[in-house]
């Protein structure tokens, strides 16, 4: 039995029918454990976003199954899928997924409002401190630098204590030093908080900071055991 937090087994995803059909994922197998920072690397159009949307329950695979903590996500209602995303998954999107009219602290408060619980002030302050955001906790997203915004997105994703964090090209809008900073922080958070973090990227320079690397090309996904130093 697998102990994976998130596992995708024999996933196929096709768009369209007949000779215009596109196979975005072809028998993809994937797993991530708690405390692991996994990269999925591949060129544009290779199926990375399709993979993330299936893992997040935003799209259903043509065949195969997604397991979260050993439980299959099948035939969920729209409401259950929303609850799944809210409770089990933390998202970090390409550019900012922050809400423009909420301050950094309020981004956390919104999560609490949705979960019908009081503001977890000490948890929020700890995360802000960890990610060097204490000085900007009352700032709005448009007052932050690109790097700060992505750090807030990381903090917000961790704040709800999800099973797994999915990051879709989180460094796409950052320069190299800031990209490396963000990736190092993701790695540190995975290890410190024993979180499963999956990062999709097309940037080769970032993979040295990851524990496991999957390569994807034309929908074919393979685990690359030579990529990381360990």
């Amino acid at each position: 039995m697998s102990t994976a937090v998130l596992a995708l087994q024999h996933i196929n995803k096709q768009f369209g029918h007949g000779h215009t059909a596109v196979t975005a994922l072809n028998d993809a197998n994937f797993e991530v454990n708690a405390g692991e920072f996994v990269a999925i690397i591949g060129p544009s159009g290779s199926g990375k976003s399709t993979f993330l949307t299936i893992a997040a329950g935003l799209q259903t695979p043509t065949s195969g199954q997604v397991l979260l903590n050993g439980q299959a996500l099948t035939k969920q209602s729209e409401k259950e899928r929303l609850a799944y995303r809210f409770n089990e998954i933390g998202f970090i999107l390409q550019s900012s997924n922050l809400i423009p009219f909420l301050t950094v602290t309020e981004q956390f408060k919104l999560v609490d409002k949705m979960a019908h619980r009081p503001f977890q002030q000490s948890a929020a302050l700890e995360l802000l401190n960890e990610l060097a955001l204490s000085d900007v906790k009352n700032a709005y997203p448009n007052e932050l630098s690109g790097g700060e915004r992505q750090r807030v997105a990381i903090a917000r994703a961790l704040y709800n204590d999800p099973s797994v964090i999915l990051a879709d090209e989180p460094t796409a809008s950052l320069d190299t030093p800031r990209s490396i900073d963000v990736v190092q922080r993701l790695a540190a958070e995975a290890h410190q908080h024993n979180k499963a973090i999956v990062m999709v990227t097309h940037d080769q320079r970032l993979i040295s900071h990851c524990d496991v690397v999957y390569r994807i090309e034309d929908g074919n996904m393979t685990r690359d055991n030579t990529a990381t130093a360990q």
């Binding site: 729209e78 409401k79 929303l82 995303r85 809210f86 999107l93 997924n97 809400i99 949705m114």
Partner: peptide, 9 residues
């Protein structure tokens, strides 16, 4: 769209 991704429906 981003809110919906995050489970806020």
């Amino acid at each position: 769209g981003v809110l919906k991704v995050q489970g806020i429906g």
